[in-house]
Amino acid sequence: MDLISSLLELAQDYWPQFLRGLWTTVQLTVLSCLLGFCLAIPLALARLSKNWLISGPALVYSVCFRGSPLLVQVFLIYYGLPSVLLQFYGGDVPAMRESFFWPLLNAPFMLALIAFTLNTGAYMAEPIRGGIQSVPNGEREAALACGMSPRLLTRRVLLPRGLRIAIPALSNETILTMKATTLVSLVTMLDLMGAAGRAFTQTYDSKVYLVLVPFYLVLIWAIARIFALLEKRYNRYLVRKTV
């Protein structure tokens, strides 16, 4: 049990770093998933639109953000945006720093949040779209027969039903986003993984990575628990099929 005691020792030496990293991970995951969810709903509806002027751009968005690595997206957003703004100001840094956008562009957290939100929004839109599509046709017809307008049909029937169907898949997307927060070291931020990396280069002891395992397990357990509660709450009307 040598391993365990040396792990505990490492955890003891570096716990403030780990806790700060954990907080960054939690904040980013929660905020980007909430905002991403808000983005995903209109995106899913746009993808289902019969008007290609609406569904086309939504498809392009979805392919770009789901098709390229998040690492590249974070890089282009964090390092690309300010250089675009600087070009706009003709290379005049002091003038650029006065601009309205600067406080946003100078905040790594905000830009990371934007990148993660755009990305997770694109991913979450897929199960929501699938959920809406799998609403039984009978329900759709019944709603129309009751005289609901397409808009009311979407609001009262398709979205609530579709979202409920999508809950398990959304839980997966949330876990994926949580795991992807390891990328924020690219923008000078320290998440859980970054904290371990820092401890690693201080001790050169690769066991610090094992210390992370319980941290991530707790996070995943928490996410799974939250979604289980959501599912229980919103899908309670469903009769469980007995096998």
């Binding site: 390092y79 300010p82 250089s83 840094v93 720093r97 100078n106 070291s185 690219l186 000078t188």
Partner: peptide, 18 residues
């Protein structure tokens, strides 16, 4: 103090004005 993973990224942010 801002710590970057690579020197390249720090240089970029100097050019960017960050």
């Amino acid at each position: 103090l801002k710590q970057y993973k690579t020197q390249e990224e720090a240089n970029l942010d100097l050019a960017n004005g960050r």
